[in-house]
Amino acid sequence: MAARANWKGHLRLSLVSCSVGLYPAVSTSAHLKCHTINRETGNRIKQLIVDSVTEEPVDREDQIKGCEVAKDELVPIEGDELDEIALESTHTINIEAFCRRSEVDERYLDRPYYLAAEDKVSREAFAVIRDAMKKKGMAGLGRLVIYKRERIVLLEPYGKGLLATLLRYHDEIRSPTAYFEDMPDGTPTDEMRSLAEELIERATRKFDPKTFEDRYEGALIALVQGKASKSGKRSKATKAAAKTSGNVVNLMEALKRSIASEKSGAPRSEGRKAGTKAPARSASGSTARKATTRKSASRKKAA
């Protein structure tokens, strides 16, 4: 396999065991890499690790873990001491339980990986576990130690392999109560709700992640390319990404305009949020528009 595994060990279900490798399912290598540089020289800035008290540089071999037991009180932990507390999950994912995938709250999902059999001898046992899970419609729950931390892992059949998603612990999830308890219920009218439902129905389509692009990343690349060519001018792509338009007066008007836009096939505007007021018109501008309207009406009567 071309990719390099982030973790290698064994997958075990009771007495069935097989050699597996864990591979990242996502990548950020396509992102534009930006660094902190010196404005004067254009050179990258180098960070130096120093002692917080003596302000003297600390060599890599002298850098160890220090666990905080009280404010400003740290207990040093050596690398060999960490090795002594190695758990079984350091080398083995033991499937401890099974559940329906739908039972797992989306907030607990952290990072996805691909889990694959590492050798020909392991493929049969791996396929047995994978196919049994697929037949029963179940996901497995286990643990593994990765990046010096034990993590819960959710295992699901995925093609010829398994999708292994690291889960957050319960104490890492914040309760929504503090954010939602003071939120007003709102009193949308039946007409507003009906218009919103029509918008949803018109915009409903099968999910395709390829239709979404990182527009900020594109604008940033265009900006970098423009500066790299020493033109000093913002490209059209950058200007287009930064442009906003629209003049939404209130929620009902926004819904009606959205429906009209959908029916006409015109692109939806990306202006102010619904519920915000448009800037006040100047008295002179309003008077001029009224005069123009009266002249137009008088011409029509004369005709």
Results as ranks from 00 to 15, higher is better:
278 A>C: 09
101 R>F: 12
56 E>R: 08
276 T>K: 14
262 E>A: 12
151 R>A: 08
110 D>A: 13
107 R>F: 14
233 K>R: 11
53 V>M: 04
220 L>N: 01
11 L>T: 06
166 L>C: 02
278 A>V: 15
251 L>T: 15
248 V>D: 10
276 T>P: 02
199 L>W: 06
258 S>N: 13
220 L>I: 08
12 R>S: 15
202 R>A: 15
19 S>Y: 02
187 T>N: 09
259 I>R: 09
281 R>F: 00
247 N>E: 14
178 A>G: 15
119 D>Q: 06
232 G>Q: 00
3 A>T: 09
142 G>N: 09
206 K>E: 09
71 K>L: 10
34 C>Y: 09
291 A>M: 10
253 E>G: 13
17 S>Y: 00
126 F>E: 02
242 A>E: 15
1 M>T: 11
48 L>Q: 12
286 S>M: 10
86 A>P: 00
262 E>M: 10
142 G>T: 07
24 P>S: 03
179 Y>F: 14
38 N>H: 15
101 R>W: 08
103 E>S: 15
121 V>K: 11
39 R>M: 07
105 D>M: 10
284 S>L: 09
122 S>P: 03
67 C>I: 15
190 D>K: 13
233 K>I: 04
204 T>M: 04
134 K>V: 01
49 I>H: 07
277 K>H: 07
21 G>E: 00
193 R>G: 06
260 A>R: 09
8 K>D: 00
280 A>M: 07
120 K>G: 03
273 K>G: 14
100 R>T: 08
294 R>Q: 14
154 L>F: 08
104 V>F: 03
189 T>W: 06
287 T>N: 08
126 F>W: 01
268 R>W: 05
128 V>K: 05
99 C>L: 12
296 S>F: 07
32 L>E: 13
258 S>C: 12
260 A>Q: 13
238 T>Q: 11
217 E>H: 12
130 R>K: 10
226 G>K: 03
33 K>A: 12
36 T>P: 05
158 Y>V: 04
52 S>A: 14
183 M>D: 11
77 I>S: 01
51 D>N: 12
147 Y>E: 08
208 D>M: 01
25 A>N: 03
184 P>M: 08
181 E>Q: 14
139 A>L: 03
